[in-house]
C-alpha cells in the first residue's frame, strides 16, 4: 500500500513552498454509519515537517480538519534536493511518515 502522505515541496526563490495531502478519514465521532452506529472519532492530532533535523512546521489538528487533510506553508533555508520529512500521529496512536526531496 502506498503511503498515506503526498507532498509537493518546490523551491521558489529563497523559500520552499510545501503542500501536503494525507489520506485519513478524520472522523469527528459525531457521525453515524449506515447501520446507525456512531463512528468513533479518528483524526490526525499532530503533523510535523522536518528539514535538516529541524522542525519547520508543526500542525495540531482537531476533528474539524477536513477528511483527507490538506495544508500548505512555506519556509526559508531549504534548497533543491534537500530532504523534507513529514510525519503524523493520530488519536489512536497510528503514525505514518515520508521523506520527500525538495524540487
Amino acid at each position: 500500500m502506498a503511503s498515506s502522505i503526498r507532498v509537493r515541496a518546490i523551491q521558489n526563490g529563497d523559500v520552499t513552498d510545501v503542500q501536503t495531502l494525507i489520506q485519513h478519514p478524520m472522523d469527528t465521532g459525531l457521525i453515524k454509519d449506515a447501520k446507525g452506529e456512531l463512528i468513533p472519532a479518528h483524526f490526525i492530532q499532530q503533523l510535523t515537517f522536518e528539514h535538516n533535523g529541524k522542525t519547520v512546521f508543526l500542525a495540531d489538528w482537531g476533528t474539524a480538519v477536513s477528511k483527507d487533510p490538506y495544508v500548505k506553508f512555506a519556509f526559508k533555508g531549504g534548497a533543491k534536493g534537500d530532504d523534507l520529512k513529514v510525519s503524523w500521529v493520530d488519536n489512536k496512536g497510528a503514525t505514518d511518515s515520508l521523506t520527500a526531496k525538495i524540487q
Binding site: 478524520m26 522542525t55 519547520v56 482537531g62 477536513s66 526559508k76
Partner: peptide, 21 residues
Amino acid sequence: LAASYKIPEGTVPAVANRLKM
C-alpha cells in the same frame, strides 16, 4: 478550535488549510 500551527523562526507566517464547518 479547528487547527493550530507552530511557526518556527524561518517559516513564512502563512498557512492554507481545509476545514469542516
